[in-house]
């Protein structure tokens, strides 16, 4: 129980850090983007403006969110080690696992708030341009959030393993980009001479961020089955748990100096 309290304390502090470090300033940019796009594109593309506002809104949630998850996530552990700010904390009744979990939860909460505010911005823009605030948008936003959680887990893992935040950043970017192209990996089976087992292994090993991409389907009003959302949730949870477990293993026995 007290372990949970400590995790919450670390998470709350991580959230406070992101707020104080002005991470959420991207929201201002988002607001400007949404307004400008609805004004400009509304005129430019007859009958397409609703679609374009939704496309832009969802895409920027995904992009901004990924950037935040990636760059803040990578700093979560490695920055604390480099600046030695976690030294006094680990001498308190705070285990390294609790620290990792708290950091993870804190950034996830930041992303949750971020996405929540962006969603409100998107809805306001839709309403202001005389469109419906389609509740089905949630079916695209929820998977985006799941994807961001997985990005945080990847970043946290590399942050715990790598000796510097620069290395951690590079590795995380590589994995996230590869994961976004996982469908290309899957198609390699057909196209190239890479052996099937290798393609399959790669396809399974790389975190599959394509799973969370239902933006287009939602914008066009295609159904997104609940089963799909359930499996995608399971995927995010299982993969994140594996990454956190590995991060804990690596970080738990690491000398901090």
């Amino acid at each position: 129980m007290s372990g949970l309290k400590r995790i919450v304390a670390v998470a709350a502090n991580t959230f406070r850090e992101t707020v104080r470090e002005r991470v959420l300033y991207n929201l201002v940019f988002f607001a400007v983007l949404m307004t400008a796009s609805s004004l400009l594109l509304g005129n430019l593309s007859i009958r397409q403006d609703e679609k374009i506002v939704k496309d832009l809104g969802l895409a920027s949630m995904d992009i901004f969110g990924t950037f935040i998850a990636l760059f803040i996530g990578v700093g979560l552990i490695s920055k604390e080690i480099e600046r030695r700010s976690l030294y006094p904390l680990l001498a308190k009744p705070l285990t390294r696992s609790e620290f990792l979990l708290g950091k993870f939860a804190g950034l996830c909460f930041t992303l949750f708030v971020n996405i929540g505010l962006m969603s409100i911005g998107l809805i306001v823009t839709l309403l202001a341009t005389h469109h419906r605030a389609d509740p089905a948008l949630l079916k695209a936003i929820y998977p985006i959030f799941l994807g961001l959680i997985l990005v945080v887990a990847v970043a946290l893992f590399f942050s715990s393993v790598a000796s510097s935040s620069l290395l951690a950043t590079l590795w995380t970017i590589a994995v996230v980009v590869a994961g976004r192209f996982s469908d290309v990996i899957r198609n390699m089976r057909q196209v190239s001479e890479v052996p099937d087992w290798l393609v399959t292994a790669l396809y399974w090993a790389v975190p599959n961020f394509r799973n969370f991409d239902v933006k287009n389907a939602v914008v066009y009003g295609d159904p997104v089955p609940v089963v799909a959302l359930a499996w995608m949730t399971a995927y995010a949870i299982v993969y994140s748990a594996v990454l956190l477990g590995a991060a804990r293993l690596a970080f738990g026995s690491r000398d901090l100096h």
Binding site: W204, A217, W231, Y239, V242, G245, L249, G252
Partner: peptide, 27 residues
């Protein structure tokens, strides 16, 4: 306990396969 997470590793391809089976033809 810190190695327990390894038990989850096989779940990743399992869930991916299930997911692909449900929505594989989506896009």
């Amino acid at each position: 306990t810190r190695y327990l997470f390894l038990l989850l590793v096989p779940l990743v391809p399992f869930v991916q396969t299930r997911f692909d089976a449900v929505v594989g033809t989506r896009d």
